[in-house]
Design a binder for these strands. Structure first.
Length: 486
RNA sequence: GGCCCCAUGGUCUAGCGGUUCAGGACGUCUGGUUUUCAGCCAGAAGAUCGCGGGUUCGAAUCCCGCUGGGGUCACCA
């Protein structure tokens, strides 16, 4: 049975790249009928950011990536938070020391920093010089008894190579052991580093496949050697291609929106994000791009995961989101957009039947135009509030024309007399006025749009007028008359 | 700098030795629909498949070298 895990560190709000990794793990688990486990790797007490664990779980829930074991749901390998498993790692580290496969290191951080500086200057950079590895057991015991702080380092083999087969790269990746230094497994505060905790937990939780970002590839020799030293069988490894920014560097905050919660706030749809993220580093093998969850799930396979990094294309995500918005039913669309108007105070938190009906007439008029749900507010605000400002260019262009006063008067009079405020009827009225004035269509249509909405662009004018209703239309036209006089 | 990974139009991607000297999508541009924007429809521009060698009757597809890009070198994950 396939068991995969998503093991985020609560050191900040999750990044799209992190969630992409979660998605791939989830897809693989579900496609294989396996288990998807979430494990919180909170072993760094300094970088812990309150609330980030909540954000991570929120992102997973939002994408509907349900986990079989982990926070909130528990499971047979509890706990799923590393800070609650600290004793396990400590025991493991000391066991390795006892077996001579790891050792206590008393080197001060100042010395290490100095050494790093020298190595950097000499362009050699080989890491820790293994000074304490040569220390006698007696000296180590004495220094420990003396109360000196120490870390536990893994004793890497001094010769030979370490290799592993990568399921994504489809090849054996090899590293020379001498080039990997004796890394710290257990910090002086008694907490494990990623390398130790991750291996211990993956083994104990019976993880079968480790899928994580490419940036981890270079620590493979450490991990493989650790498994060996512990006498454990390593899981299979799949390193996912990195997501890059437009400049080709690893995607980060510098590239604009990358935090997952921000994407949620801007108005992306879960299905669109799911679809897009699935395509970040994976391809179904044909020309398909718009795919439902079910379709993706049925097509997903490890060997179609790409092995090259890809630029995270924001524009394409937006395009895709727009596509998904256009496909929503009225109910879905209303449920998705209303909260944005309410959040901005354009609409009250509680809608009465009349307002709700009005919103249902109005909001769909811009459905085809939306790329982000959040855009709905500025696009439709004028339907709910009298326009406070008017597009200056449009006003300058149209309100100066000589026929405007006449036009407004005619429209006011005719709309006042109109019984059925339907798109067809309002169009008839507009056409009549155009004919009567003897001007090109645009010379009535454009100024009327500006008068009613304050904007130069918007939904079809006839639909807009019908949706606004007689009362608002007449009131706004009257108001426009004042503007023209001034 | 060492080590590791990668290399098809601006971007993502199909292609896995011949019927593809390259298909699709985003973006860009043009035209159409139309009262605007968007959408939709039609079309266009844009890649000597990073470069150089091989292997082969034949390579974007296999091999080698080079170049370029990226990742990683913490008591962070």
């Amino acid at each position: 049975m396939v068991r995969v895990r998503y093991a985020p560190s609560p050191t900040g709000s999750p990044h799209v790249g992190n969630i992409r990794t979660a998605l791939f793990n989830w897809l693989f688990a579900r496609a294989q009928g396996g288990k998807f486990i979430v494990r919180i790797e909170d072993t760094d007490r300094n970088r812990f950011v309150p609330g980030s664990e909540e954000d991570i779980l929120l992102a997973l829930r939002w994408l509907e990536l349900d986990w079989d074991e982990g926070p909130e749901v528990g499971g047979p390998y509890s706990p799923y938070k590393q800070s609650e498993r600290a004793e396990l790692y400590r025991e493991t580290a000391h066991r390795l020391v006892d077996e001579g496969k790891a050792y206590k290191c008393f080197c001060a951080s100042e010395r290490l920093a100095e050494m790093r500086k020298e190595q950097e200057a000499a362009k050699t950079a080989i890491g820790y010089d293994r000074r304490c590895r040569r220390m006698s057991k007696e000296e180590a015991a004495a220094r420990e008894a003396n109360g000196e702080a120490y870390v536990i380092r893994f004793a890497m083999p001094l010769e030979g190579v370490t290799s592993y087969y990568d399921l994504v790269h489809k090849k054996e990746v090899e590293f020379k052991n001498v080039l990997t230094d004796d890394f710290v497994m257990l910090k002086s505060d008694g907490f494990p580093t990623y390398h130790l905790a991750n291996i211990v937990d993956d083994h104990l939780m019976e993880i079968t496949h480790v899928m994580r970002a490419d940036e981890w590839m270079s620590s493979m020799p450490r991990h493989v050697q650790l498994y060996r030293a512990l006498g454990w069988e390593p899981p299979k490894f799949a390193h996912l291609p990195l997501l890059m920014g437009p400049d080709g560097q690893k995607l980060s905050k510098r590239h604009g929106t990358v935090q997952f919660t921000e994407f949620i706030g801007e108005g992306y749809l879960p299905d669109a994000m799911f679809n897009f993220l699935a395509l970040c580093g994976w391809s179904p093998g044909d020309d398909r791009e718009i795919m439902s969850r079910e379709e993706i799930l049925s097509l997903f396979s490890l060997d179609r995961i790409l092995d090259r990094p890809a630029v995270f294309h924001h524009d394409k995500l937006k395009w895709m989101n727009g596509h998904y918005i256009r496909e929503m039913s009225l109910e879905q669309y209303m449920a998705a957009t209303l909260p944005y108007l309410q959040k901005e105070g354009v609409l009250p938190a509680e809608l009465n039947a009349e307002t709700r009906a009005y919103a249902e007439r109005v909001l769909p008029l811009e459905q085809e135009k939306l790329r982000l749900l959040g855009e709905i507010t500025e696009l439709t605000r004028f339907f709910f509030e009298e326009p406070k400002s008017f597009d200056e260019k449009a006003v300058a262009k149209w309100f100066g024309e000589t026929h405007i006063s006449q036009m407004l008067d005619a429209l006011i009079q005719r709309f006042n007399a109109l019984e059925n405020f339907t798109p067809e009827e309002t169009e008839r009225v507009i056409r009549e006025v155009i004919a009567w004035l003897g001007v090109p269509n645009g010379h009535v249509i454009h100024p009327t749009r500006v008068a009613l909405s304050g904007r130069a662009t918007g939904p079809s004018l006839f639909d807009m007028i019908a949706a606004l209703g007689k009362e608002r239309v007449v009131r706004r036209l009257e108001k426009a008359k004042q503007m023209v006089r001034v």
